[in-house]
Every structure is written in structure tokens, then in C-alpha cells.
Amino acid sequence: MAKGNFRRYDLHESQQNCSLENIDFCDSSTVPFLNERYSRRDFIKGVIASGIAIAGIPYMASGQVRPTSSLGSVERLVSLNVNGQVRRVDVLPNETLVMTLRYKLGLTGTKLGCDRGECGACTVLIDDVDHYACSTLTHRVRNREVTTVEGLENSEGELHPVQSAFVRELAPQCGFCTPGQVMSAVALLKKNSNPTREEVRIALSGNLCRCGAYDHYLNGVMSAAQEINRG
């Protein structure tokens, strides 16, 4: 799901097989209409796009997908372009991008803060657009370019202007939301290299920071924009 500014409604019904919780009654069921409207449909679209028959959904929902390939099922061994490298990886049909990055490709810079599209800690770029990796099926990013926080430094190991500005401005506190904040900021500056502080705030509003370091992150993005424009 592409990231919007309506993070509070970007709810998924525990689409990630592994944290489907048998007792979280209130977890998603208190907002069934939201699930119907946004997540289930989006999710089904994703599954169709990845080549799975709709009949496969009950299996996923009940967590019964077997790690074997069967006739008519999606090709599980896929090529992913992550940080400029093409990597072959075995991907379950219902696997989210954040799980592939973190558990298959060892890219743990992308954090899992909520696993349901609320916090933005898992933000990555897909073809330069910021997305929540917890709410994106890995099969949907075949033939797309995925960029994670690990892919921002240049070949000399120099930090991206957003990263160095965050260091300068002492933007991160606990640091857990930082990769997501970095990625949202990078995505913004790719399409608008001279944003106002208000535009930065809106662009980053899908990234929660419980430490409350918003002010310093905004300082960082403004400073990075200046640096980019100076060339």
C-alpha cells in the first residue's frame, strides 16, 4: 500500500501470517469497516497481482500455507532488485516486503514497529516512492527498484545528505524510527528538493516517533534540502 497521510486508517487485518493473534479481539475487529474498505481489498488486489488464486486466501488467513510449490501456484523463487543489486530469493505468496528484507536478505535497517501500516518504521522506496514495507507484498515489487536505508550511502561510503543532516541536527533519539524517517525524507527530496517546513511535516507525517524528535527531524530535512540545492 502506498503511504498516505492517513496513517491512522491504513489498517491491515494482521495480513502477516506470523502475528495473527488469536486473542487480539480489538486489534482489527473494532474497525471492520475500515478493514473492508481499505485493507482487505488492497490485500486481495495484491494477491491477485502476485498471481495467486483468490482461493488461496483462506489458507493464508489460517496460516496453513505449506512451504511447497503446487501446480498453478506462483513462482516462489523471484529476483528482487534491492539497493541496485538483483538478488534471488524464495518468497512465500503472502510474504510482506519487510519480512523478506529483514529475514531473507539480512537488511535489518528497515524496522518493524507495528506491522500494520501505522508507524512508518518500515518505510522503503519502491521506484523512488515511499511505501510501508509491512503493508507491501514482496511479490508486488518484482521488476521494481527497492531502496532501503542500507542503499543510501554512495560507493565511497558517504552518507546521503539526509543522513548527514540528521547526524548534524541530532535528529534521532532512540533511533528505531530513524530509518523510516530517513526514507520518507529522501522520497520527498527526490520529488521536491526545496520543500517548506510545512511540506516536510506533511511528507513525514506517516512516520511516528514516540521520542517526539519531530522538530529535529524537520531541522534535518530542511538542512539536507539546502545541502542538495547547493550541489
Partner: peptide, 23 residues
């Protein structure tokens, strides 16, 4: 006795949009 606030959207910590641009 079931808790109702078990998500960020329910328990509501402040976001960028809830606070001033500068403090």
C-alpha cells in the same frame, strides 16, 4: 474487561501533525 486501545490509531501518541512546526 477487554482493552480497547491496542493500536497507535486507538491509543494515539502525537504525530507530526499534532504538534507545532517549531518548539
Amino acid at each position: 474487561g477487554i482493552p480497547g486501545g491496542v493500536g497507535f490509531y486507538q491509543a494515539k501518541p502525537p504525530s507530526y501533525l499534532d504538534v507545532p512546526l517549531e518548539l
